[in-house]
């Protein structure tokens, strides 16, 4: 009898994009970017805590931070921030009761802007290196 009932154990199905509409894709991206940004926050705090260990430890780390792998990681952080932020703007606009009839278009438009911004930051970051 109990199968099929709502349950927190179905959480993994949030991330299953099969047979879903574009709104769920945004829902998934928003959750993934949020998880990513949260992980970054903790990494960031961990790095800052190196300051406690003295300036030498921190400077050593900064050298490491210039490596391409870390840079790609940072690129993900920027992308996550932009996507999550713009998506949040869409949700706020919608939740205030506006632009509801074009919410799919709004999503696509904002994600195009996000993509453009990500490309821009990527070029700046990697060419400036």
């Amino acid at each position: 009898m109990n199968i099929n009932k709502p349950s927190p154990s179905h959480l993994w199905r949030w991330f299953d994009p099969r047979d879903k509409s574009i709104g769920t894709i945004a829902f998934i991206i928003n959750r993934l970017s949020a998880i990513g940004l949260t992980i970054y926050l903790f990494l960031h705090l961990a790095v800052l805590s190196k300051l406690v260990a003295g300036s030498q430890a921190y400077d050593d780390f900064l050298i490491l931070a210039k490596s391409p792998a870390i840079k790609i990681g940072e690129m993900f952080v920027i992308a996550g921030g932009i996507i999550h932020g713009l998506n949040g703007i869409r949700i706020t606009i919608n939740s205030l009761g506006f632009l509801l009839k074009i919410q799919n278009g709004l999503l696509v438009g904002l994600m195009i802007i996000a993509l453009a911004a990500i490309v821009y930051f990527a070029i700046r970051m990697f060419s400036g290196a």
Binding site: S21, G23, R90, L96
Partner: peptide, 23 residues
């Protein structure tokens, strides 16, 4: 705001839109 409700509604209710209007 996944709007999956409005996508599957067979009867033009647009629950997603209505929830937002209610907000």
């Amino acid at each position: 705001n996944a709007f999956e409700c409005s996508a599957v509604c067979p009867s033009n209710v647009e629950p997603g839109l209505r929830i937002m209007k209610m907000r």
